[in-house]
């Protein structure tokens, strides 16, 4: 099994998000960046498949130079190779732009692959678009939000999460799979892995190297405005005996919130 895993550098989930209104962008100062948490599940799954069935795992990232740290983590976890496709554009929130770059890179740089693994969404844009769009652009089958994956020769079966149930999906290979929490327990990097990853050369290629002119990537979405969430005022806070507190709470639910 030859597996391509796509990893993205994102601010960690504890980050406070501030807006740079002049640039109409998220203010990146002081943010701690990590590998997108869902991509860790994708990485782990790739490594487990390789360990069971042989093959290679290649980690690929599209983004600024700093994404090298994310690729080094992937190498430290156990990826055989890594590739950085350098793209310094500000975030456009347009999934099709990102997917176009990835699909083109796959066409240009990789010929022999069985699986393309992604996280089910990146926790910055929350688009949940790129894996599906890459599948569409390459004409490949897709299964998203996967919590269970079985790969055989030429085909696979996946279980994906839906509302209050799950869907079992059969698909042919090569395929695009996006990982959900619960698929596995991502491993920690070992010290040995980290040292080996440090020494490993990671090729950096540009959009031009894969035959894309930046001008052709004009976003299909126009970001009009970024705004902080509406501020929520703290309401009533009571400290009473349990019975009295419960009575007041039910009164609130009935009379004010009108929910019961």
């Amino acid at each position: 099994m030859n597996i391509l895993v796509f990893v993205k550098r994102v601010p960690d989930s504890e980050s406070k998000i501030k807006i740079d209104h002049d640039k109409n962008q998220i203010d990146k100062h002081g943010l701690n960046f990590v590998m997108n948490p869902y991509d860790e599940y994708a990485m782990e799954e790739a490594l487990q498949i390789k360990e069971a069935q042989g093959g290679t795992v290649q980690a690929i990232s599209v983004g600024p130079e700093e994404s090298m740290a994310t690729l080094k983590k992937a190498l430290a976890m156990g990826a055989d190779e890594a590739l950085l496709i350098k793209d310094d554009a500000e975030e456009t929130y347009d999934g099709l732009r990102q997917a176009t770059i990835i699909a083109q890179a796959v066409k240009e740089k990789f010929s022999d692959y069985d699986l393309l693994l992604f996280g089910k969404q990146s926790i910055d844009t929350d688009n949940s678009q790129v894996p599906t769009m890459v599948a569409a652009l390459l004409g490949l089958p897709q299964v998203n939000v996967v919590t269970k994956l079985e790969i055989e020769e030429g085909s696979g079966t996946a279980v994906r999460e839906i509302e209050g149930a799950a869907e079992k999906v059969q698909f042919s290979l090569p395929a695009v799979i996006s990982a959900q929490k619960g698929l596995n327990e991502p491993r920690y990097e070992t010290l040995k892995g980290i040292m080996a990853a440090k020494r490993k050369e990671v090729p950096v290629i540009s959009l031009e190297d894969i035959g894309i002119e930046n001008a052709s990537l004009k976003p299909k979405l126009k970001l009009v405005k970024l705004a902080p969430p509406p501020t929520k005022q703290a309401g009533k806070k009571i400290e009473e005996e349990a019975e009295e507190a419960a009575r007041q709470l039910v009164e609130f639910l009935h009379q004010e919130a009108k929910i019961i």
């Binding site: 807006i19 998220i26 929130y93 004009k218 299909k220 979405l221 970001l223 405005k225 705004a227 902080p228």
Partner: peptide, 8 residues
């Protein structure tokens, strides 16, 4: 954060 978009 909340983002507003138009489509091109």
């Amino acid at each position: 954060a909340f983002a507003s978009f138009r489509f091109s």
